Computed example of a mutant assay.
Amino acid sequence: MDHTNTPDDAQKKAKPLAPKVKELIASTKSVILATVDADGNPNSSYAPFVQVDNTFYILVSFMARHTKNLAEGRKTSMMFIEDESATKQIYARERLTIEATTSQIERDSDNWNNVIAKLKETHGKVVDVISEMKDFILIALHPTKGSYVNGFGSAYFVDENLEILEHRNDVNHQSK
């Protein structure tokens, strides 16, 4: 009997379907953000978002530290993560982490108006109020690459289209 292929090996070869990534994104209303300032100091935050095609949009205020970092196009990472109350194993929460570039959307442009309408549809009338405030800007986050994890030893590279590419690591966790 051949014992060379373990269930872990089979799991690595069987990539999760792309809809799992899309389902995780659809299950959240906000994205966790990691940015850096001009001195390289990290900042973590969050923002409500909408997704249009493969671009994520957030409406953020310059009163928040992360907004300047985003507006100046510094490195950005986004995370979508399974709700703690829904997870079976806190150490293995389903999550998608995406590296992204950013661009600012010109106020009152067609793109601005379309995205603001989608934000209002998703997040309510508060968007009408804050989108009129001059310290709020609309940022587009353009995915470049990422990682999707859906359990122990089940981590995958993700491309800019949020498609799963390949298993991230062929080495299992090691015991001491």
Rank of each mutant, 00 (worst) to 15 (best):
Val50Lys: 03
Thr67Val: 01
Asn43Tyr: 11
Leu24Val: 12
Met63Asp: 15
Thr87Trp: 01
Thr35Phe: 05
Thr35Pro: 02
Asn43Thr: 14
Tyr57Lys: 07
Asn69Leu: 03
Gln51Glu: 14
Ile90Gly: 00
Leu59Phe: 08
Ala86Met: 15
Ala47Cys: 02
Leu24Gln: 07
Ser85Gly: 12
Leu70Asn: 00
Phe62Cys: 07
Gln89Met: 11
Met79Val: 09
Asp39Lys: 14
Tyr57Pro: 04
Ala34Cys: 15
Val50His: 11
Glu82His: 03
Phe80Asn: 01
Ala64Gln: 09
Thr67Asn: 04
Phe80Trp: 03
Lys75Gln: 12
Met63Cys: 14
Leu33Phe: 08
Ala38Cys: 06
Leu70Gly: 04
Asp37Gln: 06
Phe56Ala: 04
Gln51Asp: 10
Leu70Cys: 03
Phe49Trp: 01
Ser45Ile: 04
Tyr46Ser: 12
Val36Cys: 04
Gly73Trp: 00
Ser85Glu: 15
Leu33Glu: 07
Tyr46Trp: 09
Thr87Phe: 06
Asn41Ser: 06
Glu23Trp: 07
Glu84Thr: 10
Asn43Asp: 15
Ala64Gly: 08
Ala71Leu: 05
Ser30Glu: 15
Glu82Thr: 03
Thr35Gly: 08
Thr67Trp: 06
Phe62Gln: 13
Phe56Tyr: 15
Ala38Asp: 13
Arg74His: 02
Asn69Trp: 02
His66Gly: 06
Gly73Ser: 01
Thr76Tyr: 02
Asn41Ala: 06
Met63Gly: 14
Met79Ser: 10
Glu23Ile: 07
Gly73Tyr: 00
Leu24Asn: 09
Val31Gln: 02
Arg74Thr: 02
Asn54His: 15
Ser44Glu: 09
Gly73Arg: 00
Pro48Asp: 08
His66Lys: 02
Ala34Phe: 10
Ser61Gln: 02
Leu33Trp: 02
Gly40Asp: 10
Thr87Lys: 03
Ile25Tyr: 05
Thr67Tyr: 06
Phe62Thr: 13
Lys75Glu: 13
Asp53Asn: 11
Ala34Glu: 08
Lys75Asp: 12
Ser45Arg: 03
Pro48Gln: 09
Ala47Arg: 05
Thr28Leu: 10
Ser61His: 08
Pro42Ile: 14
Gln51Thr: 11
Val52Glu: 13
Ser77Ile: 05
Asn54Ser: 13
Pro42Ser: 07
Ala86His: 15
Gly40Val: 08
Ala86Cys: 13
Lys88Asp: 11
